[in-house]
Design a protein around this nucleic acid. Structure first.
Length: 510
RNA sequence: GGCGGUGUAGCUCAGUCGGCUAGAGCACACGGCUCAUACCCGUGGAGUCCGGGGUUCGACUCCCUGCACCGCUACCA
């Protein structure tokens, strides 16, 4: 039986258009699952949309549409972006779907009946005009609402609570036994500290919120959006309805999240799972943010990057590559057009694209456009071949910890080495009859390396990798390959006709 | 305030157990090549390794201290 791999992105809150951060999480997720598929795993890759809550209600009012019309429109934009970015998700779950709502209500009911959810009173600062609760620390000086600036007041309301406090010790036990549960490590420390400092029970319903899932026994109370949203990870697998997929894929191998929503995934979600008697996910990975002009991305300050626009202007693989290569996954990064363009030109156009594009014409010219036969292997040939082979174990190591930039650096070492190999062996000088065999060997070496590079790069830049294969005359679908077979040196069959060279990554003029 | 982290070439960062002239990529300068997307290859310059003190035969690496910056400190999708 195949090993299974279940990876999720968050369900994205669709009160606005997707921005670079959404693209970042999803591209990273897609790359990881593509890598796993090539490694022979059976993958379930889930993404989706979170569609309830006050903010959406308000956005809808502002735009004079119904909330449902708003989220439908936004979901379409997200899905359109995913298609543009070659995102290969297996399922897209919307929290407004019946299959999700039923599960959320079942979960609520179960927790209620076993005493993990109880009825109590919630007390807090409340702004009446905004209909929002605030924490004391969030209020502006003088107890003013941070949103409208009017005074907030303390009110009490009935609410259902989840006994989060009960799970403090079990959570800590789990953390201690799985020190890599949260990555990067510094985030694990933060979570650990937070839990140690004491957990309070969590209010999991809101009164009079009209855009949400009503609790099963008390329709006045709407289930708190976070609880609703987190459950998507099991509702998509049919928890409490049809559990075939749940049995197969649960627990999740990785929940990929932005660092802003780490605690929900590393504390509240595991606690809910413990209460439900389900296994805990293996890993939660919190990645960093892209900063623009030195600050956090924000609409009000005009610091929003539209990933769709970038993909349309410069290419979707170019964007995928940049996001994963430029910054170590987990750290914050800086986005600017000029950094972006430099990276693309230097790595994709000059190093990789040009390698392919300088080699193919030689094959056309000296080998009648056909893959030559390898012939005798010299020491330097062997060196290149071994360097190519060495990438696989290194890549496995780095992908294990989601170190995409490291994996790409490893691949690029081979790209550079191959360019060097071409220079050293100068195939364009091996034109005489006496050199024919050597010429064949040299070109075969480079072409075969390019074939394997295509395979290695497929998780990162899928359509471009496929184009590399096409230009090499390969007709197979990269999606259906396995590292185990296709990663073996010698896959190119001499005599195969190559295609004419076409620049893969045109240089971008600044 | 508490806890955690960071401070290394112009820029972004690597530097495992403390050990010979501190590294990479990009940028810059010069040279080579001319198959190619004016590309690729080679050579080179520069760094008080945040400041101060200590341990040690020896510290970028360990300890103390000062400064600067960043993160977390629950109901913000």
């Amino acid at each position: 039986m195949k090993k299974t791999f279940y990876l999720s992105t968050p369900v994205y809150y669709v009160n606005g258009a997707p921005h670079l951060g959404h693209a970042y999480t999803t591209v990273a997720a897609d790359t990881l699952v593509r890598y796993k598929r090539l490694s022979g795993w059976e993958v379930f890759f889930l993404t989706g949309s979170d569609e309830y809550g006050n903010k959406i209600l308000r956005s809808a009012k502002d735009q004079k549409v119904t909330p449902f019309e708003l989220v439908n429109k936004m979901v379409e934009r997200f899905q359109n972006l995913w298609q543009t970015l070659s995102i290969s998700y297996d399922d897209f779950i919307r929290t407004t779907e019946e299959r999700h709502i039923r599960v959320v209500r079942n979960v609520f009911q179960k927790l209620l009946s076993q005493g993990d959810i109880y009825k109590g009173k919630y007390e807090g600062w409340y702004c009446v005009p905004c209909e929002s609760f605030w924490l004391e620390g969030q209020l502006k000086e003088g107890g003013l609402c941070p949103e409208c600036g009017r005074p907030a007041e303390i009110i009490q309301e009935e609410s259902y609570f989840f006994r989060l406090s009960q799970y403090q010790e079990p959570l800590l036990d789990y953390f201690r036994q799985n020190p890599d549960f949260v990555l990067p490590r510094t985030r694990m420390n933060e979570v650990m500290k937070f839990v140690k400092s004491g957990l309070r029970d969590l209010s999991v319903t809101r009164l009079n919120l009209k855009w949400g899932i009503p609790s099963p026994i008390d329709e006045q109370h709407t289930i708190y959006v976070w609880v609703d949203a987190l459950i998507n990870y099991i509702s998509a697998l049919g928890y409490s309805l049809n559990e075939t997929k749940l049995t197969k894929f649960w627990p999740a191998n990785v929940h990929l999240v932005g660092k802003d929503i780490l605690k929900f995934h590393a504390v509240i979600w595991p606690a809910l799972l413990l209460a439900l008697g389900l296994a805990l996910p293996q890993r939660v990975f919190a990645h960093g943010w892209w900063k623009v002009n030195g600050g956090k991305m924000s609409k009000s300050q005009g610091r929003v990057i539209d990933p769709l626009q970038l993909a349309q202007d410069y290419g979707s693989d170019q964007l995928r590559y940049f996001l994963l290569r430029e910054v170590p996954f987990g750290q914050d990064g800086t986005f600017s057009k000029s950094i972006f363009i430099k990276r693309i030109n230097s790595d994709l156009a000059n190093d990789l694209g040009n390698l392919l594009n300088r080699t193919l014409p030689l094959v056309t010219r000296y080998c009648q456009g056909k893959i030559p036969s390898p012939g005798e292997e010299k020491a330097e040939d062997k060196k290149l071949k071994e360097a190519v082979g060495a990438v696989f174990p290194r890549m496995e190591l780095s992908m294990e910890t989601l170190s995409f930039s490291v994996a790409l650096t490893e691949i690029w070492k081979v790209v550079k080495l191959t360019n060097l190999y071409v220079d050293r062996n100068a195939p364009w000088q091996l034109t005489g009859k006496e050199n024919k065999e050597r010429l064949s060997r040299v070109l075969y070496q480079v072409l075969e390396t390019l074939r394997i590079l295509g395979l290695l790069l497929f998780p990162f830049i899928p359509p471009s990798a496929q184009k590399i294969w096409q230009q090499l005359g390969l007709k197979e679908d990269l999606e259906k390959q396995l590292f185990e077979k296709a990663g073996k040196w010698g896959g190119l069959i001499p005599g195969t006709e190559i295609q004419s060279a076409k620049p893969l990554f045109p240089r971008i003029k600044e």
